[in-house]
Design a protein around this nucleic acid. Structure first.
Length: 486
DNA sequence: ATGTAC
């Protein structure tokens, strides 16, 4: 393929623009938030997909690609696109197969010194308590009525059933429950896949990790303290997972329906993977109701894994999870579409923001934030590879103007899964990690090899681009000491 | 990402 980089103009240190003039069908420009290093390795596919997305009807302002952006299904992963709520479309490819895949950060008041002697025991027990890997089932099997409840109420079902604390919902995007879910639109097949998947980790890049916040890696102590990180070598837990086979089934079914029905809506889409329907059409409304159901399932999934995590820590340290300070810092989605108000041509407008592999990053004083975070901005949780570490950042005003209040979500792969499997021996990697002080337990060595640090972009560089691009502010880098993987 | 293929 010809090199498409020539279609971009660098309009600032951190933004490469594909102007509307690059293609007659583009409705808005594309802004890629990169730095020199990331741009040098920019994949043609991202430019191509950015242009394709920019041709969708009803787009406002621009399409944004986050610093971890890479080629994905239809939309780039790391893509943000907002459509006029009245005149726009919804596109499942702009949300992703794993609906409401997201991150969760849990505090403890423990330090590394206290955790280290029990690390192996913790990880071994977590590996049992949180089923990891493809097809693994939960100890919780929901009745049809309970599953409907989860789809409508998300984390509230978890809390009402004694698996979570009342306060947990305050520290979640949408308070852990997205309105207007429609369980009656979910197929029997999706329901039967989902009923025993609450509290399961999954595979691929999903993980549950024990991490350490070293003092030297805390960049903003006030904000870190507000997020519950206030002592040197404090231990935190990060969970990355989504809606499992349930959300995947929902996404697959609606993608097919959208594709079949597109001619009906007179939509001309240049890539099948961008299948879309008008927001106000029956298909559009149905998908949004199904998406909300899967999103609430994912909130409940991560919340139940936290319940298990609190139990394991509590058992091993012989103290209540409350005594161990195991509060939720935040739970944030990075595969979802949401109705939000944003400035368009100087006026507030209701838009449907698609975030695919992009984290919501609302600034201080945003009405959606818990009072405890009003002064500091929304916690933005960025998961890195299991060898290199992760970050917690905070939302800033700039991102509202740049990218509908969004930031990056992870480091982004540089090596395909198949190449990583060929090139890296999982067993050797496990030993190497143990020597480095990271105790890892994976459902399969192949799965482990795929997630090796060298298969990923440099997360420090991605985060630096997100900070320089005024999408977020730095709070703390978190280093892994224990990890379970699917 | 995914009972990794209808």
């Amino acid at each position: 393929m010809e090199n498409l980089k020539g279609l971009t103009n660098r309009i600032s240190d951190t933004i490469w623009e594909i102007p509307k003039s690059a293609d007659p069908d583009m409705n808005v420009p594309v802004h890629i938030y990169y730095n020199e290093e990331l741009f040098n390795n920019l994949d043609n596919g991202v430019i191509k997909q950015g242009i394709n997305v920019a041709t969708l009807p009803g787009l406002v302002n621009k399409v944004s690609v986050m610093p971890d952006g890479h080629w994905g299904y239809g939309f780039p992963i790391g893509g943000v696109a907002a459509m006029d709520a009245e005149k726009g479309v919804v596109s499942p490819g702009g949300i992703g197969f794993d609906i409401n895949c997201g991150m969760r950060l849990i505090q403890t008041n423990l330090t590394r010194d206290e955790v280290q002697p029990k690390l192996k025991q913790l990880i071994d027990e977590l590996f049992i308590a949180v089923p990891a890997g493809v097809g693994r089932k939960s100890d919780l099997a929901l009745s049809p009525r309970q599953l409907d409840d989860v789809m409508v109420n998300g984390v509230d079902w978890i809390i009402d059933n004694g698996y979570g604390w009342k306060e947990d919902r305050l520290f979640m995007e949408e308070q852990g429950s997205i309105p207007d879910a429609k369980p009656e639109l979910i197929s029997h097949k999706a329901k039967s896949r989902g009923r025993n998947q609450i509290g399961t980790l999954g595979s691929g890049n999903h993980f549950l990790e024990i991490q350490v916040a070293k003092k030297e890696n805390v960049y903003d102590q006030d904000t870190a303290s507000a997020f519950g990180i206030n002592k040197d070598n404090q231990v935190v837990i990060m969970i990355h997972s989504g809606s499992r086979g349930f959300g995947h089934q929902v996404a697959s079914e609606y993608l097919k329906t959208f594709l079949d029905n597109m001619p009906k809506y007179g939509l001309k889409i240049r890539d099948k993977e961008l299948a879309a329907a008008p927001i106000h059409s029956r298909d559009g409304q149905n998908y949004l109701g199904a998406m909300a159901s899967a999103a609430n399932f994912a909130f409940a999934n991560r919340a139940y894994m936290m319940y298990k995590t609190r139990q394991v820590f509590s058992k091993i340290f012989g103290r209540d999870a409350e005594e161990l300070g195991m509060h939720l810092t935040y739970d944030v989605c990075h595969n979802i579409a949401k109705f939000e108000e944003h400035l368009v041509d100087g006026r507030k407008k209701r838009v449907l923001v698609h975030r695919k592999g992009a984290t919501r990053a609302f600034p201080p004083n945003h009405p959606d934030l818990a009072p405890q975070y009003k002064e500091y901005g929304q916690p933005v949780i960025i998961g890195g590879s299991m060898e290199t570490g992760s970050y917690v950042l905070a939302g800033v005003e700039g991102s509202m103007h740049e990218a509908f209040g969004s930031s990056a979500h992870g480091s982004g792969r540089t090596m395909s899964r198949s190449r990583a499997k060929k090139q890296i021996d999982g067993k050797e990697l496990e030993q190497k990690m143990h020597k480095k002080g990271i105790y890892v337990k994976a459902a399969s060595y192949k799965g482990l090899a795929e997630e090796a640090g060298i298969a990923y972009k440099n997360l420090d560089s991605v985060v630096k681009a997100a900070l320089d691009g005024n999408l977020t502010k730095p709070v703390a880098k978190l280093l892994p000491i224990g990890n379970i993987k699917g």
